[in-house]
Amino acid sequence: MSKPKIYIDGKEGTTGLQIYERLGKRDDVELLLIDEDKRKDTEERRKFLNAADIVFLCLPDAAAKEAVTLIENDHTRVIDASTAHRTDPDWDYGFAELSKAHRAAIAGSKRVANPGCHASGFISSVYPLVARGVVPEDFAFTCSSLTGYSGGGKKMIAEYEDAERDSRHDSERIYGLNLHHKHLPEMEYVCGLMHAPVFVPIVGDFYKGMATTVMLPGVDAHIVHDTLAEHYANQNFVTVAPTGGDENVIYANTMAGRDSLRLIVCGHEEQTIVTALFDNLGKGASGAAVQNMNIMLGLEETTGLTL
C-alpha cells in the first residue's frame, strides 16, 4: 500500500519548518520536496499541489487563497495554516476536541482551516462554556495572551535574537493596540458570540510557549472547572488541571516542546480566570496541523506528536 503523499507549501516559514520537523521523522508518509530554486515558481508549485494527497499551506493569506485555486482535482486535501479560511463556512475548523461534530468533519474534510495560536487558547476555554450554557453568547469577554517571540515568525525571531537588540525587549511587549487582532474574527465565529472579545496580545522574551487567559467576572470557578473537565474528558491533546492549577503560579513556557494544551481554572464563586497553557508552535500551529492530518488520514491522532 502506497504512503500518503504530503506537500508543505511554504516549508521555509516557522510553521512550515515545524511541520516538516514532525513529519521528517516518520516513515508512514511520503514528503514531496520542491527544489529550493523553484519554490516560488507557480507552475512547479501547481504540480506539487496536485500530486499530493494532503497539502499544508504555510503562507500569507493572499498566497494561501491563490494556492487553493491552483488545485485542479478533487483528490488533494488541504490544511491551511493561514488566517484566510478560518471563518469560511465551506472550510472545516481544525480543532477536533471542541465536539464530536468537529472531529467527524475534520476526518472527512477536503478543506481544513488550522486554528490561530491566540484563538486556540481563547476558543478552548470559551467554546464549551457557551455551548453548555455556563456563559451567554453576549457575555463581555476579555482576554490577554502572552506568547513567546517565535509567534511573530522569522522577522520577530531575528529581532529578539539580535545581539544589538532594543533593550526594551528584555520586558514584555503589549501590541495589537487597535484591538483588531487578526484572530478576533475566528474567536467570535467559532464560539458563536454576539460580539468579539476585548483582546490584548503580549510577546515575551522567550522562544516559544503561550498562556492565554480569559477573565470571567460573576462566574463561579467551580462550575467552570467542572464544565471544562467534563467537556474534555478522555481527550489526548486537551487536559484540565485541578482547580487552582498544578502549582500556585503559571509560567507561559511550561508546555514548550509539546503538542498538547492544558487548561487552568482559578478563582472563586464570584470571579474566574481560565488560562490555556500550550506551545504556540505546537497545539497553536504545527502540532495542531499534524494532528488534523492524522485524523484526516485515519491514523492515531497522536502519531509523531508529543503530549
Rank of each mutant, 00 (worst) to 15 (best):
R262H: 14
N178T: 14
H102I: 00
L297T: 01
A63T: 12
D74I: 04
T15Y: 03
G284V: 01
T275M: 07
G13M: 06
V200P: 00
A158M: 06
L57H: 13
R173L: 14
R26V: 00
A84Q: 11
W91E: 01
E72A: 11
D53V: 08
L33P: 00
E172N: 13
A64W: 12
D226L: 00
D246V: 15
V68W: 10
E36W: 05
K110G: 14
V200C: 06
T14C: 00
K208L: 00
G192A: 12
A196S: 15
T142H: 10
Q291S: 05
L129M: 03
S171F: 10
G209T: 08
V134N: 04
G218E: 01
E172I: 13
V112Y: 05
E270V: 09
S150W: 13
L177Y: 06
A113Q: 02
A196V: 05
D80K: 11
D74C: 09
G284W: 04
I54E: 08
M156V: 15
D37I: 11
I71V: 12
H118W: 09
E44L: 02
K47Q: 11
T83S: 14
G218W: 10
D279I: 09
Y251C: 05
L261G: 06
R111A: 03
E36V: 10
F237A: 07
L98G: 05
C191N: 11
N234A: 11
P217I: 09
V134T: 12
V240T: 06
S2H: 12
A196D: 01
A163S: 13
D205W: 00
P128T: 06
V130N: 10
M194F: 02
P4S: 03
A163F: 07
R77W: 08
G267A: 04
S2E: 15
G218S: 04
K65W: 07
M156S: 04
N114Q: 08
S144Q: 14
A241T: 09
I264H: 04
I157T: 12
H222R: 15
D53L: 05
L57W: 11
G245E: 04
F56Q: 05
A105F: 03
V290I: 07
T275E: 12
V224L: 09
